[in-house]
Each structure stands twice: as structure tokens, then as C-alpha cells.
């Protein structure tokens, strides 16, 4: 099986969040992302730090992950980004 590159993994994580009505708990997100715990943590921290996603708490204090504008923009532009990288051989 082909190893996913960094952008592909980010795309998959963001897509999972979006496809779950833009609200998913971190544990199911980890499971659906097909990453190791350590790998997921690194990507998750990066996505939080770079404001692609944010964490929100519901009334019961449960943590949910949700996309913010940059995350939606990434998903919207993903094909363009890949096209750019391929076109310029980066």
C-alpha cells in the first residue's frame, strides 16, 4: 500500500471532520484517519497550531474537533494545490 504524503494525510483528516457534520471527537477521528497515535498527534497538533481546526467543548464538557475557515479553504483548494505541485515538480 502506498504511503500517504503529508498533504494527503492532512486532506484526509480535514475531510473526515467535514464529512462528520464538521464535528467529531478526537478518538473517532484518530481511528478513521488510519494513523498511529503518535503520527495522529503530530498532525493534529500541527492542524490546531496552524488554525486549520479548533477544539470546542459541548455543554457536557466533551471535546469536539471542528474545521475553521483555513481548513475549509484547504479542502476547497486541495486539487489546485496538488496540480500546482505536480506542474512545477515541487
Amino acid at each position: 500500500m502506498k504511503r500517504r504524503d503529508r498533504l494527503e494525510v492532512i486532506h484526509d483528516i480535514l475531510r473526515i471532520v467535514r464529512d462528520n457534520n464538521n464535528s467529531i471527537k478526537p478518538t473517532p477521528l484518530l481511528r478513521k484517519s488510519n494513523l498511529s497515535s503518535q503520527g495522529f498527534s503530530e498532525y493534529y497538533e500541527e492542524l490546531l497550531k496552524k488554525s486549520f481546526v479548533k477544539e470546542i467543548l459541548d455543554k457536557k464538557g466533551r471535546k469536539f474537533v471542528t474545521l475553521v475557515d483555513k481548513g475549509f479553504l484547504f479542502l476547497e483548494k486541495y486539487k489546485t494545490i496538488i496540480g500546482f505541485i505536480e506542474e512545477f515538480e515541487l
Binding site: L7, K50, K70, F74, K77, F84, I85, L90
Partner: peptide, 17 residues
Amino acid sequence: KTREILSLTYHKGIKYF
């Protein structure tokens, strides 16, 4: 023109480009 694409990806190749 490539500013946005870098801000979305932080891709090293795009950064050097």
C-alpha cells in the same frame, strides 16, 4: 501569486520556489 498556496500547505518545495 503563490502566497496563499504556501500559507495553506507550508510545503517546502513551494517555499523554496
